[in-house]
Design a protein around this nucleic acid. Structure first.
Length: 281
DNA sequence: GACCAGGGTAACT
DNA sequence: AGTTACCATGGT
């Protein structure tokens, strides 16, 4: 059990950064990550892990939920920049940026392109069931870990297509080939400069600016990047640019406006825009 | 049935 | 170097 502040389990899981969770009840979730299934619930400012084994495990999940970071400081600093962002922060003040595994995060966001979140979750589940490891049962349902690099590298393009990945299947094959061969060392990216890490990720087919930004933010702790998807584009044009803007101009603006915490700002704005359907018609 | 989704590639000017 | 069709699949 932990005391948590500036944290909402629901907001953190539902804000679109991760895909392997199920809502069991209000403020109670099943999460699949770190090759484990955990049941976690929040009661006020208490966070309760129902099936955690030892202290080492606790550390892993504390790290996963980014519980040691001072979010009040981040939110205060971001709130001082402008009113729009203040509104977005106050709308979902309990969001935290998860620390996700870089391999799973990369493949997940390759799958995400041009897809809605429920579909993304389904395809990742299909792939895990097809190639991952049985990691336990809950409510008579069997859960599978996200496949390792080795496991997924055994898959054929047709098998991945069968998981409903569609045209993204060859991209996943390419990622497996480049990573399993050692050509790209994704577990070394965190120690690199953001630009260098992105360069490496961009070598993979189907990985462009947005997906590499998501990996950088959600698993490499590169908190200054500003992943710009359709929703972020809309919210930025609607509130800040006041006209249609190009990707590079939006990202440049965001870095100047939000500074080194641009990635956090992005996540508050994303949830806000998507929930309120900002700029959509 | 048209349109869109946490985009990116390749084939065009 | 800048635009544009197209890529599978499911929801609205």
């Amino acid at each position: 059990m932990y005391k948590v502040i500036d944290f909402s389990l629901e907001e953190t899981l539902e804000c679109g950064q991760c895909f392997r969770f199920e809502k069991l009840e209000d403020n109670k979730y099943l999460v699949v990550a770190n090759s484990k299934v955990i049941i976690i619930k929040q009661e006020g400012n208490e966070l309760i892990f129902e099936n955690i084994e030892d202290e080492k495990d606790e550390k892993v999940w504390k790290n996963y939920f980014d519980l040691d970071r001072d979010y009040k400081k981040i939110k205060d600093e971001l709130s001082s920049t402008d009113k729009v962002l203040t509104d977005a922060i106050n709308y979902k003040p309990g969001i935290r940026l998860l620390k996700q595994d870089v391999w799973e995060c990369l493949i997940s966001f390759i799958i995400s392109q041009n897809k809605q979140i429920p579909h993304i979750k389904q395809v990742i589940k299909n792939i895990s069931e097809a190639f991952g490891t049985n990691i336990g049962t809950y409510n008579d349902k069997v859960y599978y870990s996200f496949p390792t690099i080795e496991q997924l590298s055994k898959a054929t393009e047709d098998q991945i297509r069968a998981c409903k990945a569609g045209f993204r299947a060859p991209y996943i094959i390419d990622a497996c080939a480049k990573i399993n061969s050692g050509q790209i060392d994704i577990y070394n990216l965190e120690s690199m400069e953001t630009i260098k890490a992105k360069e490496e990720l961009l070598k993979i087919k189907g990985v462009g600016n947005k997906i590499s930004d998501c990996v950088a933010l959600f698993s490499l702790s590169k908190h200054e990047v500003f992943p710009t998807d359709v929703w972020i584009k809309r919210v930025m044009e609607y509130f800040y640019m006041k006209e249609e803007a190009e990707l590079k101009d939006i990202q440049k603006f965001a870095r100047e406006q939000f500074g080194d915490y641009a990635g956090f700002a992005q996540q508050y704005l994303f949830y806000y825009a998507r929930d309120k359907k900002i700029g959509k018609k």
